[in-house]
Design a binder for these strands. Structure first.
Lengths: 324, 324
DNA sequence: CTGAAAGCGCTTACAG
DNA sequence: CTGAAAGCGCTTACAG
């Protein structure tokens, strides 16, 4: 049988009210009584039922998190940052991915109405930004971890995409490269525009090839421009995955990296250390973004008003052999 | 204000009991009454509070999951398999990682006592198998996703490590390799012993180097045996990460893969497609293991007795250029 | 400093 | 087929 607050009260010879006060350290309890109650709690191994506490208090001490597919290469970092922060605050983390179409979005929505969690962390809500915005308007605290420049009407954490692009350009320029091939992601993403603008502020020359963040798109872009005869002495790929495709195509074409062509990526995934040659890249602080977003949400739940500007964490250029 | 079952009852002119029966499709309700209630539910946008339902029913319709660091390369696959299955069943998934030492284990333990979830999925519980076993004995349904051969006293899902090792050996033997260097993981892991045994059943010759599943350990093993003058015509690395280190060391030493030395890994991480040359490896069905474990746990929660043998999912040899 | 009682929002015998 | 009432395990005014 489960041990309840009533068992503790009986055993300690006090009321449930008093046990509750001890549990929640409400101060106004005689210290002798309090320590007696604490002893009973320990000896009985009593732990309050989270469901009952939640019902009585009207909060769940749980935050929800809605993510894109967990197999995305940097998801583990973000998630780890979130889990660590949430756990340390004594909150639970409820995970949702909604990657099975409308039905799963609906299910998620009803979890929100069911008050299964007090606040929501969101990453890259492909087609759900509208739904999320509606939930936020209804009063659900939300924080977005935003790699793509959505600029929502609720708090978010982002990174310095523009400065990241600029840092890549400065690095290439410093080693005398002036004719970059830029392999972007989809142009409708805010982060892609920012990375591109930052880069071109510094290095306005070169060629732009629109990719889609996949390895294949990096490979195809290089193959096409090599075939075209487009002259380029370097490549700035908007993410590491497409940079891997770039490296592959260059190797296949017999171009040496970095001697013929220097390559810079974006993200700093683990794979960046394992490419041949290892990839110079602009690091996104994914774990820190997860931690920061979780802290913002928890602070908001604790009553601190949320910042009305996105919180922006700095990128960092990581120099490896593909662009020394 | 939150819409409650009382609001629905009043609006529909019935008792809360009746609304509850409609909600839980208990049959014994007049179909006219039922549809009227359903209309009111829809028009009010009523969703039952999960906390209240959980308290009244004594279950949370939530499963917990305890994982090692989420940045491990194959965690995303497992987690995705679990989340999909759990979501589809209408359950929530509460995530814990306990990677901040004793304090976080304690916190996790108290979540268990708090009945925050009905059952637990566990991956690779480094130092927590004792705790978990105790929880299982106390009545918590548990399923282990087991990459390491723990053979616990509760249900688990595993993969064919022994046959996987054997398939690697058969493949190498078929291309005429007879002097393998085997880079293992830590020998106390059951999976390491199994992979080794399976391999040696087929190919009992060669040299064994104990590694620890890190890239560095693969690299060092090769460097050492190259320096030793140990003759080997192939390498079987017990995971892909150490295989990456193996490839790096071979390249640095000017050995060609696969002409001089063929290399086979284990796992089939995404990186296996991006190494130079791409890595032949034994695929572990991580996503399927996650799905299967989640299904087993849900079935158990639904009353089906759990299988007393581990459920074993097959590995598959994926042939790429490092060992054609 | 302490307790009796109401209430959080449901479900579930029990009675009709 | 339907409802009143008790109960799930807590918290929180309120009164003393």
């Amino acid at each position: 049988m489960r041990v309840t607050i009533a068992d503790v009260a009986r055993e300690a010879g006090v009321s449930k009210t008093t046990v509750s006060r001890v549990l929640n350290t409400k101060g106004e309890v005689d210290s002798g009584t309090a320590s007696r109650v604490r002893e009973v709690i320990a000896s009985l191994g009593y732990v309050p039922s989270s469901g009952a506490v939640g019902l009585a208090r009207g909060t769940s001490r749980t935050v929800g998190m809605l993510t894109p597919p967990l197999t995305w290469p940097w998801m583990g970092e973000v998630l780890q940052g979130v889990v660590d922060t949430v756990e340390a605050a004594g909150y639970g983390l409820l995970l949702f991915t909604c990657n099975r179409g409308a039905e799963s979005v609906e299910r998620f929505t009803s979890q929100v109405s069911a008050r299964a969690f007090d606040g929501l962390l969101v990453i890259e809500p492909e087609n759900t930004l509208g739904t999320i915005t509606a939930m936020h308007r209804e009063g659900l605290p939300v924080v977005l971890i935003d790699d793509r420049g959505h600029h929502p009407e609720f708090p978010s954490v982002a990174t310095t995409n523009r400065e990241g692009g600029a840092s890549a350009a400065r690095h290439l320029l410093a080693s005398g490269r002036t004719r970059p091939l830029i392999v972007t992601g989809r142009r409708h993403f805010g982060c892609v525009r920012d990375r591109l603008d930052g880069f071109r502020d510094v290095l306005p020359t070169g060629t732009i090839a629109e990719g889609d963040f996949t390895e294949l798109s990096g490979q195809l872009a290089v193959e096409r421009h090599l075939a075209d005869g487009t002259p380029f002495d370097s490549v700035f790929a908007h993410n590491d995955l497409s940079a891997v495709g770039v490296l592959r195509a260059l190797r296949a074409a017999g171009r040496s990296v970095p001697d013929d062509i220097a390559v810079v990526g974006f993200d700093d995934l683990p794979v960046a250390q394992h490419t041949e040659p290892p990839l110079t890249t602009v690091r996104q602080p994914m774990r820190e973004m997860g931690e920061t977003a979780a802290r913002m949400l928890l602070a908001h739940l604790g009553g601190t008003p949320a910042p009305d500007e996105p919180v922006v964490l700095p990128t960092e250029l990581v120099v490896r052999r593909s662009a020394p």
